[in-house]
Amino acid sequence: MDTVLELRALVKNFPGHRAVDNVSLSLSRGGFYSLLGPSGCGKTTTLRMIGGFETPDSGQVLLAGNVVNNLKPWQRNVSTVFQNYALFPHLTALANVEFGLRERGDADRREQALRALDLVELSAKRDRLPAQLSGGEKQRVALARSLVLAPQLLLLDEPLAALDPKLRKQMRAELKAVQRRTGITFLFVTHDQEEALSLSDKLAVMNAGRIEQFDTPETVYLRPATAFVAGFLGAINWFGSTGVRPESTRITRQKPSDVPCRRGAIESALFMGNCVHVNTALDTGGRAVAEVPRDQHDFKEGEPVWISWAPSDELNFEVAS
């Protein structure tokens, strides 16, 4: 597979701190990729350097093998879906989608724009102004406006963050479907681990300006490279420098044999619908959470229990956080 984007040792400093610290990354054509990290980790700054809105202090951005560090946004064949959508408020949905095509001077821009609106199922509202569209509809116009230009790479800056939770899940599925249908490479920035895990072919976890791990969702979740990655992608119980996911943590009344275990007491139980999150206080100090199937939960608050796990479920790191 050919490489559509390559970042080489990218560095960006802002007054007082280093926003992006030696980031290298290579994306193959046609994939769905995510940059995942807490706010302030440098993921948006990285995206803005790819889009041409920030200039790297050092390092290189390569698009299809060419260094584009000095190219302006309008000279790069990438497009961005902005967090607040940035739709032109004085233009209809259709005119918004046509904006880039008109710049390019395409004669059949009307047909192209209509097809793009069709792709995001918004043809019926093509004559509405952005103010007359809902959040999800604005989102689709922004997506169509970028996709219609058939960019080499589509950058999405937390595009689902402004939507309500139900709509967010629906748009998530649509986003993936659109990516598969168009075959355009997506680079999706988010701080939501569930979003990144469910959407991505591969995801890069960023922390403090660096990429801590870049791999498939399965590997990143099951074999996190660092304690930060383990902690950021889902909850984790720490037993010394050993991490165990709540779904791999067992609670029993009898002391289990042949597996590592700790003594503790039930603190509380949170009913989650499909399971119960049982919180325990360890006798050695600290806490642990176990995800227990609904029908197996009959623990009382304050009851002494054993907390155990299978050695194969351990996540071990050199330095525990």
Binding site: G51, G52, F53, K72, P73, W74, V78, S79, T80, F82, N84, A86, L87, F88, P89, H90, F99, G100, E103, R104, R145, S146, L149
Partner: peptide, 27 residues
Amino acid sequence: LDPSLMEAAADLGARPLSTLRRVILPL
């Protein structure tokens, strides 16, 4: 004016003069 509108115009291929004429002036 939301600065991201100007960025969006540049992103969609508009040079600064085109952004002025098609986005900034109407708004």
